[in-house]
Design a protein around this nucleic acid. Sequence first.
DNA 1: GCTTGACCTCAACCTCGGTTGAGGCGCGAG
DNA 2: CTCGCGCCTCAACCGAGGTTGAGGTCAAGC
Lengths: 172, 172
Amino acid sequence: MGNSSPGAPGNPPRGSRRRAEELLSVGEVAARSGVAVSALHFYERKGLISSRRDDRNQRRYPRGVLRRVAVVRIAVRLGIPLATVAHALRRLPDERTATAADWRRLSADWRAELDERIEQLQRLRDDLDGCIGCGCLSLGRCSLINPGDRLGADGPGARTLDVSLERTGRGG
Amino acid sequence: MGNSSPGAPGNPPRGSRRRAEELLSVGEVAARSGVAVSALHFYERKGLISSRRDDRNQRRYPRGVLRRVAVVRIAVRLGIPLATVAHALRRLPDERTATAADWRRLSADWRAELDERIEQLQRLRDDLDGCIGCGCLSLGRCSLINPGDRLGADGPGARTLDVSLERTGRGG
DNA sequence: GCTTGACCTCAACCTCGGTTGAGGCGCGAG
DNA sequence: CTCGCGCCTCAACCGAGGTTGAGGTCAAGC
């Protein structure tokens, strides 16, 4: 990132002053969105955005792409996997630039996700608070942990640390 | 995971009934903590836990390792990088099994981290709420996004989407 | 006395969200 | 004419957090 000035000296909208319908080059999108060109390519491969090509095979984006990119960045920050975002965005028309209702649906969905994640963290925090209170991340009593330490001195073992919350979803 | 029954038929605490000072085999730690053996090896490589070896070169863990593992799992769920956790845990004595004060310090630190992360998500949520209200993830007005879409029709470009929050810390 | 099972090591592979680099095209400026 | 840049493609790599597999040791059990 951090190359030339805006306005892209060289090629983009040859012989026209900027207009509402104007198409953006990848560099312009990068500059305006703050997202690296490489990331835009990546998003395109992942089906998060799409482009037409001009006579020189260069990507041309309708301005609506800025919204999409913004949405993608937000989703990433919310911890939503790109595949999920791609799925959601695929229901939007490529060209229609998406209606208010489209975005409303997405943002409402993510709001729910966010709520859930916040709640999980808050539960975790409350548990942690209990532990600070007792001063030991108290095994055996603590709701965060409950392996067989003091408790299971000889018991039938295999208590997992599983503390509700399954959203980490790793393991490949 | 999900192999044999607890008690590890084969080798572990040969010829002794379980006692408080007893050392655990890696399989036992795995069973009791719910963490895969491979992950325990991994944690050891990363300096999160440590083991002694018995006469057969097999890992033997003091029971305190269960606490450490629990703490590691919690930290992972909090989104704290293992390197950070390792750093924190390195200040604890390997053998001393850690005092209440040790854990208190850690949990207080992480509580602060957690608070911060919760706040970030809440800010995000509030912003998202505004967007649901206006129905468009409203570019140009929205505090989530502010690229040069309707606003910057010809302006000096390069508004990034940067929305406060730097803690995602990616980019390798 | 062979199999089974827990353990060992080391190396390779996985997903996710990208970045980096090599090699090439085409255009406009100097 | 050459330079530089904006773009193109494709492939490799990064770091995090592990998992998987190959190849070997050792003690117990049938």
